[in-house]
Simulated assay, not measured.
Amino acid sequence: MLRGNVFTGFGYLGEGFRLMRQPGLRRFVIIPMVINVLLFAALFWAMAQFFSTMIAAAMAWLPDWAWLQALDWLFWLLYGVVILLVMAYGFVMMANLIGSPFYGFLAERTEALLTGKEPESPGGWLSVLKDVPRILWREVQKILYYLPRAIVLLLIGLIPVVNLIAAVLWLLFNGWMMALQYVDYPADNHKLPFRQLRQRLGDRRLSAFGFGLPVALLAMVPVVNLVLVPAAVCGATAYWVREGVSGLPVERVRS
């Protein structure tokens, strides 16, 4: 049985956009945003080249059946949506890999703002630098979780007719991955193993999808996706403390 609330999950992203503008958090947002601008420009150019090549190859594989040729425009549209979804999570994955030390610190400060409780471990930039190897390994774990499943979905997307469901599967998978990706920042700050995080999010899967799906959709929108990542980190931290994932009593959490 699916538990949680899709609409509650959706609200955390809006709260994240509000939180990232708080005076105590703004300075932790600027550096990652600069990184995102440079990364998105490079990734957009690379994916534009890959997109044209993949479409040409996929259409060449189609049998010369009249009804399939009549659906030529639909296949172009579906492949385009799949590529956008791949680019969306690819951009987020790379941005998070590069900016993960900053995002972990942003999640820490957001949690302190929401709960009114300072972290037990000493913070600051020296602490961030010390934790860089562990944080990067955490990002690698998420990539290793993502890639095998993404490859399967890519293969499904190359099968004529069957690929009609590929875009829907990609959207659902990306929504789940976005929830995992961002709630993992506060979880990692508390040294919660990645496997346990997946289990806790799975216990309230509807809330996870409610948060992750709009993040996945906005990640495909140029310009918006440049400010999306820090907002998602802040929103995911609110999710962490309010959905029972963190284990904090609800009454200690500020609204």
Rank of each mutant, 00 (worst) to 15 (best):
M1W: 13
L2N: 10
R3F: 14
R3G: 10
G9F: 04
G11Y: 01
R18H: 04
R18S: 09
M20R: 00
P23C: 11
P23K: 13
G24K: 07
I30F: 15
I31N: 09
M33F: 07
I35S: 04
N36E: 15
L38V: 14
L38T: 10
L39G: 04
F40D: 14
A48E: 12
Q49W: 12
P63V: 02
W67H: 01
A70V: 03
L74Y: 10
W76S: 00
L78G: 00
G80H: 05
V81N: 10
V86Q: 15
M87T: 05
A88C: 09
M93G: 08
M94R: 03
M94I: 15
N96M: 07
N96V: 03
G99L: 03
S100G: 07
A107M: 05
E108A: 04
T110I: 03
T110M: 04
T110H: 08
L113P: 00
E118K: 14
E118L: 12
P119I: 11
L126W: 08
V128R: 13
K130C: 07
V132E: 02
L136G: 09
W137P: 00
E139P: 00
I143A: 15
L144T: 14
L147G: 02
P148I: 09
V152R: 08
L155S: 08
L158G: 09
N163Y: 01
L171Y: 11
L172S: 04
N174E: 14
W176Q: 07
M177H: 02
A179Y: 04
Q181V: 05
V183A: 12
P186S: 10
A187I: 08
N189A: 05
N189C: 01
N189Q: 06
P193G: 10
Q199M: 07
L201A: 11
D203Y: 05
D203E: 15
L213F: 07
L217S: 01
M220A: 13
M220S: 12
V221R: 00
P222K: 09
V223P: 01
V224I: 14
V229D: 13
G235V: 02
A236C: 08
T237M: 04
T237Y: 10
W240P: 01
R242N: 11
V245C: 13
L248H: 01
P249Y: 05
R254L: 14
